[in-house]
Computed example of a mutant assay.
Amino acid sequence: MTIKQVGVLGAGTMGSGIAQVFAQNGFQVQLVDNQPSHLQNAIVKIQAGLQKCVDKGVISAEQAKTGLTSVHTSPQMDIFAQCDLVIEAVTEEEPTKIALFQSIDRICPDHTILASNTSAISLTRMAAATKRPDRFMGMHFMNPVPVMQLVELIRALQTSDETFQALQEISLKLNKTAVTVKDNPGFVSNRILMPMINEAIYTLYEGVATIEDIDAVMKLGMNHPMGPLKLADMIGLDTCLFIMNVLQDGFKDSKYRPCPLLQQMVDAGYYGKKSGKGFYEYD
């Protein structure tokens, strides 16, 4: 299964990062978002990201130039008709993802693989909503995509061996380390990470320590590059809440109950860096 043309749906932080990584590794990329401003911002981010790679000696200036010209943008999904692989990177809402995949399913040729960058939603349910469940699976990149080495490969129950092998090979071509996990709530990364973040929020909620001190403990005591509350802001508190709800609903275990403070902050519109305010304030 040869993959040359890659489609990316969603031009936000994850989508633009995924597009950059494919482009700088020799793939033609069709980046789609229904908001033209998102596409414009994505190209600016990709250009800056490629320049960072040049500055670090990861790629040459010529590779960066070629990579940028390899990214084609459109507000319409019809452009996916020429793709061998389409990766979805939109909001973590299952009905929205399923509706979009059903549209992509109608557009793409039979050989196209569909993949989701979801951080928690069942791949098996999404695969079942398409006419190609054997060519559907999860490809969960970490943020920031150009920097983080890991990609979680999540097989739906219906995923064929051929599809799985194709995405394993693609991960190697992207210079990523692919780890295979089962289709289980939160997979591995978020099943471990999100309860830690949630517990950090509980320590703030219960007045155990300040925001800065909670983050300092984990940075200085556990050698984490970023404290859990700062990380929650980077991820998005709405996304953190969504994943905790997925874990609680999936496992029916009270240990995954979202902290009331997390719910309150999302209700207030304090989503973190993307909204300008979370546990910290941002310009």
Rank of each mutant, 00 (worst) to 15 (best):
Leu157Phe: 02
Met148Gln: 09
Ile211Gln: 10
Arg155Asn: 15
His224Trp: 15
Ala216Arg: 07
Pro146Trp: 10
Val188Ala: 04
Gly227Met: 08
Val208Glu: 11
Lys176Trp: 11
Ala120Val: 01
Leu167Ser: 04
Ala232Tyr: 08
Leu150Trp: 08
Thr124Val: 14
Ala178Ile: 09
Ser189Lys: 04
Phe164Tyr: 15
Met148Ala: 01
Met142His: 12
Met226Lys: 15
Ser119Arg: 00
Asp215Trp: 02
Ile192Tyr: 05
Asp213Ile: 09
Asn184Lys: 09
His140Cys: 02
Glu169Met: 00
Leu167Cys: 14
Gln168Lys: 13
Ile214Thr: 14
Ile197Trp: 02
Thr177Phe: 10
Asn223Thr: 10
Thr130Gly: 08
Tyr202Cys: 06
Arg155Lys: 14
Lys131Phe: 06
Thr163Glu: 02
Ser119Leu: 05
Ile192Asp: 05
Met196Asn: 04
Val145Arg: 14
Glu152Arg: 09
Met196Lys: 03
Ser171Glu: 07
Gly207Ser: 13
Leu220Asn: 15
Phe136Asp: 01
Glu212Thr: 09
Met194Thr: 09
Glu169Gln: 09
Ala166His: 00
Leu204Tyr: 14
Asn143Pro: 13
Phe164Glu: 09
Met137Asn: 00
Ala120Trp: 02
Lys219Glu: 15
Thr163Pro: 00
Lys131Asp: 12
Phe187Thr: 06
Gln168Ile: 07
Ser116Lys: 13
Met142Arg: 12
Arg155His: 11
Gln165His: 09
Asp215Lys: 08
Pro185Met: 01
Leu153Asn: 13
Val217Gly: 14
Ala129Pro: 12
Pro228Asp: 05
Thr203Gln: 13
